[in-house]
């Protein structure tokens, strides 16, 4: 059987979801953002909530998320996505509201909004892309940058005595009573992508059913910022990032 004979609509097992637009994404080749965008589009499509979903886009590389996933979006000021999501969810309790934020947005300028939204137990889902660097602005040090990691503002590596320790924001949010689901995942292998999909789906369900704040941290790569190829940066992430940010569920009060 040749490939042409197999490529027929009735044999299709996987294709890009319709909610992911045909626009060419501006992300660098191999960027984890693309995978997470596709997962969000897939999940929203599977759950049939495209007309009920409102996403809050961050400032950072994912600032143009509204161009790629065909749902309603609001663009937030830097770090303020959880505050806007709070308002949207309180005014429209029947809607599924999620924020999509990077580590510079959520863990640096938006730490206050994140912690207080989670502490109030707002019924929102937070997708947190943690690549340990400010990707869009040119690879500066972020709060989540690992010790010894070279960035454009720490050219000799991050020093603890000068720059402090990497911020594990998910572990902080576990302590708060308002969060119902905190998990840390990655998208570097097919198996990891499937786990991440299940985690995001759980977070979206929690938002729909009003169980509290869910946080899905996705440990990601920034191959341009890290100055590696996409394949090398996945390997580097496995060896270095996972030691500081181990994968798995940190808190789940839903599943008893």
């Amino acid at each position: 059987m040749t490939a042409e004979e197999i490529i027929k609509p009735e044999n299709k097992v996987y294709a890009k979801p319709d909610l992911l637009n045909d626009n060419h994404m501006h992300y660098c080749p191999g960027c984890s953002h693309g995978v997470v965008h596709r997962l969000i589009a897939e999940i929203v499509e599977e759950m049939g909530i495209a007309d009920k979903t409102i996403g809050i886009a961050p400032v950072g590389c994912a600032v143009f998320a509204y161009k790629y996933v065909d749902i309603d979006w609001i663009e937030a000021a830097h770090g303020r996505a959880p505050a806007i999501a709070t308002a949207v969810k309180r005014l429209n309790p029947s809607r599924m509201v999620f924020t999509y934020q990077g580590d510079g947005d959520l863990a640096a300028i938006g730490t206050c909004e994140t912690i207080h939204a989670a502490n109030r137990g707002e019924n929102i889902a937070i997708i947190f892309i943690n690549n340990g660097i400010y990707g869009m602005t040119g690879g500066q040090m972020a709060p989540t940058t690992l010790e010894g990691m070279k960035t454009s503002t720490t050219p000799y590596g991050r020093r603890i005595d000068l720059n402090g320790y990497p911020l594990k924001i998910s572990d902080l949010l576990v302590q708060l009573d308002g969060t119902c689901y905190v998990t840390r995942q990655a998208v570097h292998t097919p198996a990891a992508v499937r786990k991440t999909k299940a985690a995001i789906k759980q977070a979206f369900l929690n938002s729909m059913e009003g169980r509290g704040t869910s946080l899905v941290e996705i440990v990601s790569t920034c191959n341009s910022g890290w100055k590696m190829s996409p394949v090398e940066s996945n390997k580097w992430m496995e060896e270095n990032m996972f030691a500081k940010y181990p994968l798995g569920d940190l808190k789940n009060t839903v599943k008893k």
Binding site: M1, A3, I6, I7, K8, N11, K12, V13, Y14, A15, K16, P17, L20, M25, Y27, P29, G30, C31, S32, H33, G34, V35, R38, V187, H188, T189, P190, V193, R194
Partner: peptide, 29 residues
Amino acid sequence: AHNHEACIGCASCATVCPDGCIEVYRVTI
């Protein structure tokens, strides 16, 4: 696809593709 004969339609490639470029088809003979 330089070696299309070997494909088993597992969709691993499409699952990790950041740009959603890959469609996967599978038949059982």
